[in-house]
């Protein structure tokens, strides 16, 4: 066991300056008019995420949930070492395709974000962006112990410990690392959750948006993007 310096206090004073390209600037238009540009306001949509209701009819919603469960499109984004465990799912041995699972290269078309292992703060920022750019309903699976409680990186200054503080997680798959079989089993479990209509993480995220943002901003000091990356 390592001793801890009880007197250590992290620096909470210093603000990280906004990056140059995101700072407001003035430019001269072709007609000589000088105009103000605030990149964060002008270039990004500032709307907060919305809660999207379920379908009015339970039967229709059930039908939809069946389709969602059987057409899981995973965002091809490997955040940590667990990404290597996802690849075998495409091989003849595991063949996840037969369950309607496939990988999409763009978050716009993906429904499932798998945080595959430890998540450094730097990657967290990207993961948040990728998650927010996915369309509802969307699901998050935490893969491996690191996403649950930090795992072997429990004392690292630079990796988060609880993924659900930052993103609404539908399912954790424990292990360090879980093998592809475990992963497959987890996805089957996720399907059941979706079928039951319980995978409403996106709406939860929208409802508790302020809480999630506060958590995210407490660890990401150089927050140089809009609150919600549409």
């Amino acid at each position: 066991m390592k001793d801890m310096d009880k007197s250590f206090r992290k620096d909470t004073e210093t603000e990280f300056p906004l990056r140059e390209e995101m700072r407001p600037r003035t430019v001269t238009a072709p007609d000589g008019q000088v105009i103000e540009i605030d990149p964060l306001r002008d270039y990004f949509c500032e709307e907060a995420p919305k809660v999207h209701r379920k379908s009015y009819s339970a039967i229709v919603e059930g039908f939809y949930n069946w389709a969602r469960a059987n057409s899981l499109w995973i965002l091809g984004f490997g955040t940590g070492c667990g990404a290597i465990e996802m690849r075998p799912l495409m091989t003849p041995r595991f063949d996840a395709y037969r369950y309607g699972i496939q990988w999409r290269p763009t978050p716009r078309q993906a429904n499932l974000l798998i945080i595959s292992g430890y998540l450094s703060v730097k990657t967290l920022k990207r993961a948040i962006r990728a998650y927010e750019q996915m369309q509802q309903p969307k699901f998050v699976v935490g893969l491996g112990s690191c996403t649950i409680n930090g795992g072997m990186y429990w004392d690292s200054y630079n990796t988060i410990k609880r993924l659900d503080d930052y993103l609404p997680v539908d399912l954790y798959i424990a292990g360090c690392m879980p093998r592809p079989e475990a992963l497959l089993a987890g996805l089957m479990e996720l399907k059941k959750i979706i079928r039951r209509g319980e995978a409403e993480g996106a709406n939860k995220y929208a409802e508790n948006f302020d809480w999630y943002k506060a958590n995210q901003k407490s660890v990401i000091k150089d927050w140089d993007m809009p609150d919600y990356s549409w």
């Binding site: 390209e21 990149p39 002008d42 270039y43 990004f44 949509c45 709307e47 919305k50 999207h52 984004f77 763009t106 978050p107 716009r108 990207r126 993961a127 962006r129 990728a130 750019q133 993007m225 990356s229 549409w230």
Partner: peptide, 21 residues
């Protein structure tokens, strides 16, 4: 009809954001 109108940097940029136009 609920499409959210977004702005020019709201694009998927391999989880990054565009630098400048």
């Amino acid at each position: 009809l609920n499409a959210q109108k977004v702005k020019q940097f709201n694009i998927v940029f391999s989880a990054e954001r565009p630098f400048k136009p």
